[in-house]
Amino acid sequence: MADKGDIELAAVLKRYGGAIAVDSISLKIPAGTYCCLLGPSGCGKSSTLRMIAGHEEISDGDILLGNEVINTLPPAKRGTAMMFQNYALFPHLDCVDNVAFSLKMKGMAKAERRARAMELLRLVDMQDYAARLPAQLSGGQQQRIALARALITGPSALLLDEPLSALDPFLRAKMREELKRLQKELGISFIHVTHSQEEAMALADLVVVMNKGRIEQASSARDVFNKPRTAFVARFIGGHNILDCAVDPADGNILLPGNVGIPLAPGMGGARRRISVRADHARLGPASGGQAGFSGTVRAVEYLGSMVHVGITPQGLLDCSIDENEFAVAVDEATFFAAPVAVGDAAAVSWKLGDVHILED
């Protein structure tokens, strides 16, 4: 493998004509990190990946691998390798020659490059398919060949552009395990673009949530889920209720439903603040002493196996408004069916004050 090194983006900007796709972002990805760039379509994540790969020119800023600025280097000289979404396998070449192709372009002797290709096929458990053409492989098998081909040059970082999007759910979960295993075994950085929250949470050491060309939050999966920095992150990651609440000018406390308050964090101000409450931290039932809560009407019930999601439309809120006027409660299956509710029923919702997270925006 090539020498490992941190990947750093320093005020990287990408323009397409008059439109800004990536807006002066700065990010450091430590060597050996599994990093997922996560966000909705058009947020700039694929443009960022392609600039790192050298397939898009940078409009401004720098990209460094280790201590070297790689902005002007061609893709083959950067120490990175790209695995494309459509795999881009050569249909007329068998698996060995597909994997060995880049070594052929470098002038390596046939026997040597094919031997090296077989090593990579064993790494991805595809040695038994070495003589097959791509058309004779399943989608998951083609992906493994594309992965071996990307790794054969010994890159410092592997760049993956939505590599699992074309796979069925069962195979997607299996390939997630394979990608994580390979990344740990090889010890190199993987930078993986996805719009799937589940994928990013399952794979990443570092989750980078992007929105409108900017980085909203870059942190561990657990931090992003438990401590979303902004309302956008809380909405996009899912599983959070967002409330916009008044701040009591007398004591600076955020006024929560149920006539209880929590203090603002140091340095925070304003007449209103947004907070988030995880759906699985809320419960059906009235608030007891020191808890927040409200009454409302059941708007939706979704059975999801181990959990049941219940949507509640609030009634009579004074100092708070709730995103989309619906509060979601995730109830475990046994608890729900011990006291089930149906659409149209009156219901109370409550949560502990310690389960409130104050958002920065």
Rank of each mutant, 00 (worst) to 15 (best):
F190S: 00
V193C: 13
Q183A: 05
T194W: 07
A173E: 15
L164V: 08
L186Y: 00
E185S: 13
L159E: 06
Q142M: 14
P155V: 01
P163H: 11
I191V: 15
A157R: 00
L167E: 12
L151E: 02
L137G: 06
R144S: 12
L171E: 01
P155C: 10
K184Y: 01
A146C: 07
Q143C: 08
E185V: 11
A166K: 11
R149T: 10
F170S: 14
L164C: 02
K184R: 15
Q136H: 10
V193M: 04
L167D: 06
E162G: 09
L167Y: 08
L167H: 12
K174C: 03
R149C: 11
A148L: 11
E178Y: 09
D168A: 10
K180W: 01
G140K: 03
R144G: 11
R144V: 06
H192S: 03
D161A: 13
T153A: 14
R144P: 07
L186D: 01
M175Y: 06
L171A: 11
L159G: 04
A200G: 06
A173S: 14
A148W: 02
M201W: 05
A200P: 13
A202L: 10
Q143I: 09
S156A: 15
L171K: 02
S196K: 06
A150C: 10
I152H: 09
E199I: 11
A200K: 09
E178T: 07
Q143H: 02
K184E: 13
R149H: 05
S156T: 10
I191K: 01
D161R: 10
Q141V: 08
E198T: 14
D168W: 12
D161W: 06
S138T: 13
L203T: 04
G140P: 10
L203E: 01
R172F: 12
Q183Y: 02
S138L: 04
E198S: 14
P155F: 07
E199N: 13
M175C: 13
P163Y: 11
L203P: 03
R176A: 07
L151C: 01
D161Q: 09
M175E: 08
R172T: 01
A202W: 02
E185H: 12
E177M: 15
R172A: 03
A148E: 05
R144D: 05
V193R: 11
E198L: 12
L171N: 00
S196E: 14
L159T: 00
M175P: 10
L186N: 00
S189N: 03
L167R: 09
G154I: 09
D168S: 04
P163Q: 09
L160G: 03
I152Y: 03
L151I: 12
K184L: 13
Q197E: 08
R181T: 07
S138I: 04
Q142T: 01
E199F: 05
E199W: 10
F170D: 07
L171S: 01
D161P: 08
A204V: 14
S196C: 05
L151G: 08
I188A: 04
K184M: 08
R149Q: 10
Q183H: 03
L158G: 02
D161F: 07
S189Y: 04
L160I: 01
L151Y: 02
I188Q: 00
Q141D: 08
R181K: 14
L182R: 03
S196P: 09
L147R: 05
D205N: 12
L159Q: 11
K174R: 15
